[in-house]
Design a protein around this nucleic acid. Structure first.
Ligand SMILES: [Mn+2]
Ligand SMILES: [Mn+2]
Ligand SMILES: [Zn+2]
Ligand SMILES: [Zn+2]
Lengths: 152, 152
DNA sequence: TACAAAGTGAGAGTGATTCTCACTTGATGC
DNA sequence: GCATCAAGTGAGAATCACTCTCACTTTGTA
């Protein structure tokens, strides 16, 4: 929320062109408060700019991922899911299994800790933390009442 | 390698029936030294028991995953990949990006470390470590010479 | 303003995974 | 051993997320 329309597009698609469609897609991704699939994003974008093609959103998501604007969180029910990533620093994500809410988390991985084991050299890793957000903990029922309700 | 044929099948399919096909599939999975796709496994199984159906292997892999006999490591080139998991304790995996070799790794995640942040309660997590195994580090070329060569 | 590279959208294509269905078979109790 | 039946099997169809192709637009730059 520190970036206006132009800046946002620029940071979402580093080194690539920013069409009106891509700008809208970046805005929609930026507005997502929880984990989303490409289809979720397509739906949100079309609410603002009808007629945007699905392929365009797939391509834009790849570009945004390459720019670090969004990050892949793996697969949920057959579809890849993503989260808008606000920090440039290396970090990970907490994902609420109730409502899909995402928040940042520090990285607990010390690569050098593993190097010893059997000569393996760790160069990267993938970590996602799952649990319940504050709201979903206080909601007693199985279906979370807040947000759009899309669990993980 | 501490289990004979029968024991192996039993531990691979806890609470489910063990057909000859499933036994062969568990043996093939047990023989995998690196990360494998369902198709890799199907190919290996058919070398021992021709005629095994693809659906059967998909079903067996799901059952083995439910029993903790194999673990999903995510997706590589559009296919889910798995590793045979020998330890019953909670742990993670080091995967060689050169040859696919997998080894066990301690868990560095302390859930309580995150609980504070914003009321989020961490109940689970998914971590995979990537890097180069000792053999692949010493191999200068881009194509690793050892193993079946299937990188990640 | 002119241009070349990059992006767009529709629709076809791909391929991993799942489903269906008629059979077969494993585990259990008698 | 034998009946029983839920569970597993295999072939093929179906699904469906994602990618590709292609004929246009457009963007960013000189
Ligand atoms: Mn983030
Ligand atoms: Mn393991
Ligand atoms: Zn929640
Ligand atoms: Zn290796």
């Amino acid at each position: 929320m520190a970036l206006d329309g132009g800046e946002l597009g620029r940071s979402a698609y580093v080194g690539a062109r920013v069409s009106p469609q891509r700008a809208a897609i970046a805005r929609a991704a930026d507005a997502m408060t929880s984990a989303f699939s490409v289809d979720d994003l397509l739906e949100a974008v079309r609410r603002q700019v009808p007629g945007v093609g699905a392929a365009t959103v797939y391509r834009a998501v790849s570009a945004m991922e390459a720019s670090g604007f969004v990050e892949s969180l793996g697969v949920r029910e057959g579809s890849a899911i993503y989260a808008r990533c606000h920090s440039g620093e290396h970090h990970h994500h907490l994902v609420c299994t109730g409502c899909g809410a995402v928040s940042d988390a520090e990285c607990p991985v010390a690569p050098e800790r593993y190097t010893a084991s059997d000569g393996f050299r760790v160069t990267g890793h993938s970590l996602v933390l799952y649990g319940q957000c504050a709201k979903c903990q206080s909601a007693p029922s199985s279906i979370s009442p807040h947000g759009r309700g899309g669990g993980i």
